[in-house]
Design a protein around this nucleic acid. Structure first.
Lengths: 210, 210
DNA sequence: TAAGAATTAGGTATTTTTACGCAATGAATA
DNA sequence: TATTCATTGCGTAAAAATACCTAATTCTTA
């Protein structure tokens, strides 16, 4: 087998170093570069083509979804394997839609990494088993069609984090009454009875992420 | 300065390797062991004492909070620095309450790590700046147990469903004050600030089902 | 350009939550 | 058996949330 060239794209330096160490133990792969965000990755790729990108999702400047889409357009011969700590199916769906050929969690090990790299290099797909079963057994039920505004989601996130109305108002430079009003509308839209119920409902219906 | 001995406790092998690589670049520290969960860590410590434990929170078998408490009891000379990807204040509160002397996020770098290690080794505390302001508003809980009792889970589920304390009391044929007390204990255990935050935290940690 | 959201906010009244301190009981367990 | 833990509950007071009312902006879009 040829040497498989790899670029790591991840904003956490400790994780990059660990990944490099693990990959060094696999004889037929070679890490040719690292990037700490999507933009840097695309710059690096202008100079050096790689067979496979190991791509994080959340990164500053340009995230993994955007970067994957751009790679699919500009470097059709380079495959992307997503490597993330996010276990939510929505991340999986987004990355697959963007054109990733593999999806692993950061708690992966050398064996799984190796298998994913080989499989994807040969033109196949490799997904962490957590994501192969879920869509079959538990098809995402059609949730209620409630659309929260940006502001409402923002306030809901603060509520989840445990901030009081007064604290949220201070953070957003708004009146306490305004937060109060937004909350009332959140209750109206969701039918929730109070704040704890709102958090539960919103999570159940994917109105916000866990 | 003496050589500072360190044990890494984290269930992600890639992260452990990365951390080891970064620590190897600091001349006055030495990684003497690794553990992939709290139980393994305590076993390792029976044989080898360390100056500092770099401790993850979420680990199988025994999590970082439990392990930190046990270390505080059995190895009073060993300091704990928490190293986690969770940015929620409740995690911070729990780890500090358990006796950790440092709190860093996994997106940290060599410089910050070095500073934290030196500070804690000398008997001080080092927290990621994100968490230095917040604790002023949130007094630290006295007791923390990540394991909720049956009654607590039952009450938490009612809270999620939107019932008030009075309603829960009526349903369970208990005094309103009793529900109040259970709630207080839920806050203490989780480090949550209020009911919405409690719901979020419980769901994130699989203390209850969505 | 007019309709319709989204966002902002004031005022007041009531309900609920949260924070304290304290303590008895029974069950589990070391 | 001794100790710890889970569960129950008293009283008080302050803080926060929630329920109503209303209405002025701004922004989007049909």
């Amino acid at each position: 087998m040829n040497i498989i060239s790899i670029i790591i794209a991840d904003d956490h330096i400790i994780f990059r170093k660990g990944l490099r160490t693990v990959l060094n133990e696999i004889p037929f792969v070679k890490v040719i570069a690292e990037a700490s965000d999507g933009k840097e990755l695309l710059n690096v790729m202008k100079k050096e083509a790689a067979d496979i990108i190991l791509m994080d999702i959340r990164m500053p400047k340009m995230d993994g979804v955007e970067a994957t889409k751009k790679i699919r357009l500009k470097f059709p011969d380079t495959f992307v394997i997503c490597l993330t700590m996010h276990e939510e199916i929505s991340y999986f769906n987004q990355m697959i839609a963007a054109g990733a050929n593999g999806f692993l969690l950061k708690k992966t090990n050398k064996e799984q990494l190796e298998k994913a790299i080989v499989t994807v290099y040969k033109g196949g797909n490799y997904y962490d088993e957590e994501f192969v079963i879920k869509p079959k057994n538990t098809p995402l039920p059609k949730k209620v069609h409630i659309k929260l505004s940006d502001r409402e989601i923002e306030i809901l996130e603060y509520i989840c984090k445990g901030f009081s109305n007064a604290e949220i108002a201070e953070k957003l430079f708004l009146s306490q009454r305004t937060i109060d009003g937004h909350k009332t509308r959140l209750f109206e839209k969701t039918g929730a009875k109070n704040a704890p119920n709102l958090v539960m409902f919103a999570l159940k219906n994917n109105l916000i992420k866990l």
